[in-house]
Design a protein around this nucleic acid. Sequence first.
DNA 1: TGCCACGACTTGACACTATCAAGTTTTGCG
DNA 2: CGCAAAACTTGATAGTGTCAAGTCGTGGCA
Lengths: 194, 194
Amino acid sequence: MAQSLREKVISAAVKYVADNGPDGLSFRQIAADAGVSHQAPYHHFGHRSAIFNEIALEGFKKFAADMGAPARDDEDSEICVRLCERYVAFAIANKGHFRVMFRADLCHLHESPETQKAADDAFATLLAAVSEMVGDSASIDEIRVQATAMWSLAHGLATLIIDGPLEKKIGRVSDRRALVRSVAQRAADGLRRA
Amino acid sequence: MAQSLREKVISAAVKYVADNGPDGLSFRQIAADAGVSHQAPYHHFGHRSAIFNEIALEGFKKFAADMGAPARDDEDSEICVRLCERYVAFAIANKGHFRVMFRADLCHLHESPETQKAADDAFATLLAAVSEMVGDSASIDEIRVQATAMWSLAHGLATLIIDGPLEKKIGRVSDRRALVRSVAQRAADGLRRA
DNA sequence: TGCCACGACTTGACACTATCAAGTTTTGCG
DNA sequence: CGCAAAACTTGATAGTGTCAAGTCGTGGCA
């Protein structure tokens, strides 16, 4: 409960981004909502855009945890399908984080080695999952290509659902799940036969 | 040459978005650069965010034209690969447009039926190309699933290259082309065997 | 020709924003 | 206790979107 101002600011920003996108985010408004002076947040973040690094950091940590977790019973047995479903589920459940994480124009990763490392870790988790999928026989280049394919597919699906035109086309959750599963299944067929 | 103020403003905005992302785009700055008063652009666009609709409109038109064009000799004969390559090429060559087109939080399509229509047309073009790919035998649902898969793959690849972590990993153009082709080829294998 | 309505643009104002530069309060700790 | 550093406030400045009025030029019509 006893949330520090720093935490309050981050979670308020995440909520704003989830609801309205990152563009109009106002430090002063957040400060006012938190009942502190307009300058208080700057003590924790230096400048406005630094908060995006912080959001991305949180996001990448949770993302890696989600993607790397052992398979549950209620999940698809096919790894590729499972990864896609988790990817999309993460994006929807953490819209505020997701919208920031992959935006190089928002998070200046070079300014925050910690966020950079979290991003690298997340990619490594993905790579590990994919190499499990294709088996040990494949070359490192082959794994890289397949990881990129898997990643692109899941990422495209997630962004098109969250920000793009797919949002309206598949409003119902059941529709979305079925679509994601179908799409991932097709891709899995293509990838497995390396 | 005799560019109207309206055209000047749009192209300046597109350039800004390509270089810096959409966030800090300033109407006043654009007006100053064009040598007009700070209020002049408002005469053409009403409010700031309306310009994103205009950028998206331009983008969707060019996008549909690019994706729907007949195959050239120097392109891959596999439709799926060709579409992916064109998609990524469009995104890179029209970064300023692409960064706006699929952002529902930026373009309020409901305010601009014309842009909405252009977006629908673009999707229809994609759908037509995919149905050519899977053949006449497939059901409409199957085509839809495959179109979504194709679209997601290409879109994910493009956004990860433009805004995300793939940008640094594949700096050289030759690397990028090879990667896009490999990835698309794997996906094509999966999709063709409907 | 005169005039006048309308589009294109300007000027001025207002509330809002990020951010610099100081202050003041709070808090942890020797 | 005392004090230093962290946490926060107050004030000012420059830049922003946008409302509300102007001004200016041009085409069309009596």
